[in-house]
Amino acid sequence: MDASGSQQQQQQQQQLDDDWDDFSDSELLDISTELQSIDSQQALVDKTDGKQSMVGFDSPCESSTSMHDCTKESSGHQTGDVRGLKRKSLHEDSLNPMQRFSKRHLSVTLLCDQSWCEMKTVYNILKPHVKRKEMQCAEVQMGIDIHLSRELEIQDVIHVDIRTREDAEALKLLNMLNMIPLLETGKCVREFPVFGVQEGVFIMGVIDELMYNQKGELVLNELKTRKQHSMPSSAQDKVNCFQVALYKLLFDGLVRGEVKKDHILDHLKLRSHQVLGAGVQAHAKKIGYHVATFEDAVDAFLLTMTCCDLPCIDLLQLEYYHQGSKGSIGIRVVPFDEAQLRVDLKGYLEYWTGQREPKGVDIEDAWKCRSCLYEQTCDWVKNRLQISNQKAAGVN
């Protein structure tokens, strides 16, 4: 094999290694929410002894003390919805995918998956057990350990009992309310929730880290852990850049006051007058807020966002961290092109709103299929092979 052939083979191998090679705090949280299979926890930052505290909440299941065996309702999904996904077909003309898969919102991570391969994203929903198996690999578990260790550097963990979806979403808002003044005073905050409505779809995510640099710029830093001691391929880099750009779009929308009360209540189907649980009210009081209902929490949050001095995000960066050596690989500063981001996002959301059928990767990205667990059953791959065979038969 000549040098050019060897180099091409190495590039292809790096591309294959990049599939599920990069992980971040927000991705791990979002993925566990989508699967409803990992610990029922959320982050709530609190100052205790000069250190931030991460508040996890117990999901409304059989017992408020069982955090590892209960199904998380804060994602906005019904437990029965997930059980029924495997029985649902890839195409149902009567319902759009948001309705078919019982989704009140989409996560940033789900959209990132879609930007890698839309067909894989759909199959992951239809066959959650396959996705769950993929998430149990050693690289993912190592990434989880690294992120947890980093999180605990500035946060302690406490728990707040929740009983309803309104409790869970109120805790997210209280989390943000408590982090806003910390960020305003120049402190670093982690796991900052962001959300907003784009193209009529409610989108939620969690920013890994927000901090100010020496120039006074507000920096969004997204940590990615990698098993390879190298920067990612262009294909993976594109996904990561899309992720942080979408985070900025959502954060800036919050700062500008673009998110309204009706967006939160109507899209997530939450009850405005639902009385919050005793644990949630007690914690709200501890951090300086007196809220009795979910609407109180929403009003407090929106008022604070209107009055706060937070700017829009100035700088986006990706920090790559090697799992093996636990050392830095490098930092990638990401340019923000809002016009292109909105074009890409609109295209992805057109599938979810039923304007088009799901699509697989383009022919130049067919190498992604080689590491996909659905390669043998994927309709997109079968159709591509059929077309290829027809063309070959025509030539002969």
Rank of each mutant, 00 (worst) to 15 (best):
M1T: 13
G5T: 11
Q9E: 15
Q13K: 03
L16E: 07
D19S: 11
W20H: 09
D25H: 15
D25L: 14
L28R: 02
D30K: 02
S37Q: 09
D46G: 14
G50H: 02
S53M: 06
D58N: 13
S63W: 07
S64V: 13
C70Q: 06
T71Y: 09
G80H: 12
D81Y: 11
H91R: 10
L95A: 13
L95V: 07
P97D: 06
R100T: 12
L111A: 03
C112M: 14
K120N: 09
T121E: 04
H129I: 06
K131F: 14
R132E: 11
K133E: 13
Q136A: 15
C137I: 09
V140N: 13
I146S: 06
S149T: 12
E151S: 13
E151H: 11
E151F: 13
L152M: 12
Q155C: 10
D156W: 12
D156N: 15
I158P: 08
D167L: 04
K172Y: 07
L173T: 02
L174W: 00
N175K: 04
M179V: 04
L182R: 12
L183I: 00
P193D: 04
G196K: 01
V197E: 10
Q198S: 08
I203C: 01
I203H: 00
G205N: 01
V219F: 05
L220R: 01
E222G: 02
M231Q: 05
C241M: 12
C241I: 07
V244K: 00
G257M: 01
H267I: 05
K269A: 15
H273G: 08
Q274I: 11
A278L: 10
A278S: 12
V280E: 01
Q281N: 06
I287T: 05
I287D: 00
T293V: 06
D296E: 10
A300S: 10
F301G: 03
T304H: 07
T306H: 13
L310R: 03
L310E: 02
L315M: 14
L316G: 00
L318R: 00
H322D: 13
K326T: 11
I331A: 10
V333Q: 13
V333L: 10
E338V: 09
D344I: 09
W352C: 02
W352K: 02
W352F: 15
V361W: 00
K368T: 05
K368S: 09
K368A: 04
S371F: 06
T377C: 08
L385I: 14
Q386L: 12
